[in-house]
Amino acid sequence: MSHPILKTQDLTVRFGGHVAVDHISCTFNAGELTAIVGPNGAGKTTYFNLISGQIPSSEGSVALNDRDITRMSVAQRTHLGIGRAFQLTNLFPNLSVLENIRLVIQSKAGRGFNMFSMATSHDDLTRPAMEVVERVRLADQADQVVAELSHGNQRKLEVALLIALDPLVYMFDEPTAGMSVDEAPVVLDLIAELKHRKDRSILLVEHKMDVIRTLADRIIVLHNGALAADGDPATVMASDVVQEAYMGKELEDV
């Protein structure tokens, strides 16, 4: 049932002499939520950057549904089904919440070059955007400018943009970082809901142990840019690599 969607083969990037991602070969399956863990500076975000195309790889390849996307631009990869939410909130600060999401839906519909109609007249874009706004519980803030939102709500919107995009591969980079205890569950519930989409693959960088325990089907551990462990949660957590190099130090049991 669960078929491979995304594959990285010997994926590597060097910054000067520093190898930030070191020959990572890994396959991600549909219907699977993979948690990516590792200490600060392990290369998790950089690995994401290579997959979504923000930085070019030095070596190796990325394939989406057996199609080589290593040389494609970020936007091209997005249209093929790679979706990314960022560790540091990365939104359109002077546009409204609804407009942020509407822009994603518009991009998906390929209507960005429509120059002669009014943006507000495209109900078939506004309606689904409003649905996403409601789904992430930002309906009360829909018309508010993003810069005026609380940090927690901005994080929510960051996740909402990805949900609006609905890619084949969802990549979340510490989605709940900096959120308060009562805000985080909304985001985590949204991610849990996505797990029902059996044709999607979810990659989640996360430090919080309890989150990983409830959500992950599989854990991969990065250490100094290399793949240090890969397997089902129970096995990986019990393994020596994790115990020695990582546990107790970085994973916060909150």
Binding site: A75, T78, L103, V104
Partner: peptide, 11 residues
């Protein structure tokens, strides 16, 4: 507003 994110959502 944010060309980086615009590219990332597919423009």
């Amino acid at each position: 507003e944010n060309d980086f994110r615009a590219e990332s959502i597919g423009y």
